[in-house]
Design a protein around this nucleic acid. Structure first.
Lengths: 137, 137, 137, 137
DNA sequence: GTGGTCTAGACCACC
DNA sequence: GTGGTCTAGACCACG
């Protein structure tokens, strides 16, 4: 699983990597236990500084998404029990949803269109997970 | 309509203002034609520099949310026809939704919980709009 | 290539820098690929704030004159194919020429004097370019 | 002779008026002795503040382009002898020409194209002057 | 080391 | 009175 970075987007490169690994984990392209490329391999592949790659992995580890085992590399962790209570977690998500709702309003997208869109995107993710039963094919 | 800012959140103050004005517009607390507080008044109220307030308004104007008239102040624009085609707009929103879905996965919130949450938040917004039929009374 | 700024002229410092870099590029003192002084070095040299220097470079980048690479510095871009059609470009220049013609009239400089003056200035520029075949030696 | 202003251009309204009056004088649409609209007529016509119109006229008067006679209005002055020596005047113009040359370079317009363009624009101005032998027709 | 962002103060242009 | 610009200081992100 090699992320793809856009140097001109203004979004920090290390964050682009973080987001893509998280998205791959959510979408099933990466499954618990799967190995990620080594820091130096990733750096070479994307033509980025090794520090930048290391920073992305450090961020992912601190978020509990991956696990680095000295000498063997980085691996996707199981989507373990979150340290936060369910109510807290859904509250956090509610904040993000509100932002999406606000933007939908300014994009003149109706409530029901938004709900359909969510349904559609969820289906896409589910499909992707089912198509990749053993991690990246 | 006076936004409320949190100086310790790390989120730039001017962006907090932008988001709150957009949310107020989407939630019905601000209606097209309504005047926003002047740059000076806002700055004094929030104890921030005038430039910070001005920057928030500049950003809102560049996003097409407000209109600024020299010497008279800033006013909420009608949520006019977006210059983008509908397909482009919903694609843009889909990207944001995907990010929410990814985060939901990492927060271990199921698809159906997410859908319920969206429904609930939409209801909250609708309610707010109906309670403020003439702007904030 | 170190620009020279005049603090009493009333012209914004950052714009003076922009103009001088553009003039150096046109006059051959700077050639594609040449490095510009770093933001910090330029600021120190001219005794200005780093932001002022950075703003000049930002403006130059947005005009497509230079290219800025994180961590390495700023470099003069090749005077690449303009995104505008030739007709549009010469129309834009015509507007500037008209302004010069108007001013010539108010300075009571005749048409033929103006034409000679242009010829003379063009020769000066050409000479400068020829004297600096490898950037400023 | 009623100028036309563009409120969205960012250029101060009073300066747009100044430039247009000067251009009209140079192009022959206004001739020495011609009357300009009164401050209040101009302000009403363009839907601008009377102060803005007055400021434009003040600027024109201080540049020696027009003359205000209390009670009778504003009139275009003869393009009187400039207080500056010829050398100074052509030096000033040379600076403006240099700026045009630099921009021509960035617009990838060749030296000879620039010279032709000047010739063409001068011809246009001359023609306009000849077509309007008695001021605005 | 590099460039970029956010906030701020002073000043200006406009109505 | 209104909003806008320029310069500045402190801090951050990146390589």
């Amino acid at each position: 699983m090699i992320p793809h970075v856009n140097f001109k987007s203004g979004v920090p490169v290390y964050l682009q990597i973080v987001e893509q690994v998280k998205a791959a984990a959510a979408g099933g392209n990466l499954r618990p236990g799967d190995a990620l490329p080594s820091v130096r391999a990733l750096a070479e592949e994307l033509r980025i500084n090794r520090n930048t790659a290391a920073r992305a992995y450090a961020e992912l580890e601190s978020e509990g998404v991956i696990e680095t085992r000295q000498g063997s590399g980085c691996f996707l962790k199981a989507n373990g029990a979150s340290p936060l209570r369910h109510a807290v977690r859904s509250e956090r998500l509610a904040g993000e949803l509100d932002a999406v709702i606000v933007q939908a309003h300014h994009l003149r997208i109706t409530d029901s269109e938004l709900q359909s869109l969510l349904k559609e995107r969820l289906a896409t993710f589910r499909e992707r997970r089912d198509d990749a039963p053993d991690g990246q094919p």
